Amino acid sequence: MRLGLQINHSAWPDGPRRPGAELAAVARTAEAAGFHSIAVMDHFFQYREPGPSEGSMPEAYTTLGLLAAQTSRVRLLALVTGATYRPPAVLIKAVTALDVLSGGRAELGIGAGWHQEEADGLGLPFPPRARRFEHLEETLRIAEHMWSAEESPFLGTHFRLSRPLRSPRPPSRPHPPVMVGGAGERETLRLVARYAQACNLAPGPKLAHELAVLRAHCEREGRDYDSIEKTLVLPLDIGPRGENVDALLTTMGEAAGLGITRVIGTVPDVRSIAPLELIGARLIPAAARL
């Protein structure tokens, strides 16, 4: 089992005092502690559960560029990008640039999007749910098209690209891995089976059923179920002295038994650095044995 860190900017009351320096310190410490990946949220407003809309929320791909410059090993991704937030070709160019500048460490984390408040607030498209899923699938098709070095026009229902030029070429082979987030049984998991190299799910009593649904979609698509990485969002709160390690390992062990191989989560008080060091000493080595 591998661990990924998700940086939640609302973890810093009133925002970081020195955003670049503090994010850089968190990233360097997470890498040294043994985290496999670092993710940031692709939101423009803070969302309701961690804090108010006014909370600190830097743009995701600018932030990932900073993290790439401060690290040399960890994988880097947005968890997850809303498909309607950027024109698809611009998004693929951004992920490709991240892959190039990080030496092949980018992943494309993507979903249909859900946060209407920020879309309305900033004038971003936010079509009805069915159309958002159409945009998501067309974006995944455009990613395949561009990363295959195909320059022929792409003529979709919602997007038309006269020359989807790919330059520079991403160093990841065959391309940066695609992670589709969400557990919708009819659409989301079908898109995982058809296009993605990873899924991202949430813990709970439906997890085993959702994985079974994904397996069924893979069978219909002629896809090897085992070729898809199964990841789980799980808060990584080990407690001030590591008192929650055993409980976390129990949860992670149950997930590993279902085929989950990476857990990605926020860490309380991550700004202080000490929790990351404690996770590196206590949780990551034990999780690796699951």
Rank of each mutant, 00 (worst) to 15 (best):
2 R>F: 06
2 R>A: 07
6 Q>V: 14
8 N>Y: 04
8 N>M: 04
13 P>A: 09
17 R>A: 10
19 P>I: 07
21 A>D: 11
22 E>V: 01
25 A>Q: 01
34 G>A: 10
41 M>C: 07
43 H>P: 12
46 Q>T: 15
48 R>T: 14
49 E>D: 12
59 E>K: 04
63 T>C: 08
67 L>E: 12
69 A>S: 15
76 L>G: 05
89 A>N: 10
90 V>F: 03
90 V>I: 12
98 L>G: 13
98 L>W: 10
106 A>Q: 02
112 A>Y: 01
119 A>T: 05
120 D>T: 14
120 D>S: 14
121 G>H: 11
126 F>M: 06
127 P>G: 00
141 R>A: 15
142 I>S: 07
142 I>P: 10
143 A>V: 06
145 H>I: 11
147 W>H: 09
148 S>K: 04
152 S>K: 08
152 S>V: 05
152 S>D: 07
157 T>D: 11
158 H>N: 12
164 P>N: 06
166 R>F: 02
175 H>E: 08
178 V>T: 08
179 M>S: 13
180 V>E: 03
181 G>A: 14
183 A>Y: 11
187 E>K: 15
188 T>K: 11
194 R>F: 05
196 A>W: 04
196 A>T: 08
199 C>D: 09
201 L>C: 02
201 L>A: 06
202 A>S: 05
206 K>A: 14
212 A>R: 15
217 H>M: 06
218 C>T: 07
219 E>A: 15
221 E>V: 05
222 G>N: 01
231 T>G: 04
235 P>A: 01
239 G>H: 06
241 R>K: 12
246 D>H: 00
250 T>V: 14
251 T>R: 14
254 E>D: 09
255 A>P: 09
258 L>S: 03
259 G>Y: 11
263 V>A: 14
264 I>Q: 02
267 V>K: 00
270 V>T: 06
273 I>A: 12
277 E>I: 02
278 L>K: 09
279 I>C: 03
280 G>H: 05
282 R>V: 04
283 L>S: 07
